[in-house]
């Protein structure tokens, strides 16, 4: 397989397709991070929750240490946290491609989506399941980051707030979250870069992203290598500047801490 200049000039006839692919990829990543963030936030709150329906077992007085330990173990059970961590483990321990197929062929095999195109060329009935699958995946990963960001706020802040009579919710909203945002935002922005790359598997369910258009151009022209190089170039041009900007903003934010 040779790479030739003439092949690359031939690709210019298809620049329209690459452009559309680029738009789909970016839009997909934006939707994913937006919806994934809300999912992640909910999951993080679930992971940090203190819902223990059996907590009264802690109060049982007994001199039998083994029994006491067993009771305490059961008393610690938190169903809300359990559900959230089971979900996160599922997301982390199954391949993204499998998750996308599950959502597209099984979930949306039962739910019929309206068929229409938006922005002129994006097929909703393919784009939407892809965005849902990616958001479900990304939300699972981001929940760990958000949870870490919340836990990273000094415990003295919570103690000070609670000692002033603030409720758990007030403490979270007024004291913890505003400080956690600084830890969380850079990671969310980085997730955007990750999703740009990972969303490339969505061509398998017919989402017309960059990779889908690579395949189309390949089969229309019988040129194999150059469209791939084009895709590589596009992905790199999306991801490199974005991550540089994030790094820069992050550094600026850290400096403003020491004002």
């Amino acid at each position: 397989m040779t790479i030739s200049w003439s092949n690359i000039t031939k690709l210019l006839n298809y620049s329209n397709m690459f452009q559309q692919g680029l738009i789909v990829t970016v839009l997909l990543a934006l939707c994913t991070v937006f919806f994934g963030f809300f999912l992640a936030f909910g999951l993080a709150l679930m992971l940090l929750s203190d819902v223990r329906p059996l907590r009264h077992l802690e109060k049982i007085k007994t001199d039998d240490m083994e029994r006491k330990k067993r009771l305490d173990f059961i008393a610690r059970f938190n169903p809300v946290k359990f559900i959230a961590s089971a979900y996160v483990q599922f997301v982390r321990c199954t391949p993204m491609l499998v998750q996308i197929f599950l959502v597209y062929y099984i979930v949306f095999g039962y739910v019929t989506l309206p068929k229409f195109t938006f922005l002129g060329f994006i097929q909703f009935e393919r784009f939407f399941p892809a965005a849902v699958a990616l958001a479900l995946n990304s939300g699972g990963y981001m929940s760990a980051v958000i949870r870490g960001g919340i836990e990273g706020v000094d415990g003295g802040q919570t103690e000070a707030a609670r000692s002033l009579g603030m409720s758990k919710g007030q403490t979270m909203f007024h004291i913890i979250l505003p400080q956690a945002v600084k830890n969380i935002l850079p990671a969310v922005a980085n997730e955007f870069v990750t999703i740009i790359k990972e969303s490339s598997v969505c061509y398998t369910i017919g989402v017309q992203d960059i990779m889908f258009n690579v395949k189309s151009v390949q089969s229309a022209t019988f040129i194999i290598a150059e469209p791939l190089l084009m895709a590589t170039f596009l992905y790199f041009c999306l991801c490199y500047p974005t991550s540089k900007i994030i790094e820069h903003v992050e550094r600026r934010m850290r400096q403003s801490d020491n004002r």
């Binding site: 000094d154 003295g156 802040q157 103690e159 000070a160 000692s163 002033l164 009579g165 409720s167 400080q179």
Partner: peptide, 20 residues
Amino acid sequence: LDAFRQRMGMVFQHFNLFPH
């Protein structure tokens, strides 16, 4: 508890002011 805690102020070794 929240109502009760209002009646008891607390000052910490490391101040714990809200930095934001």
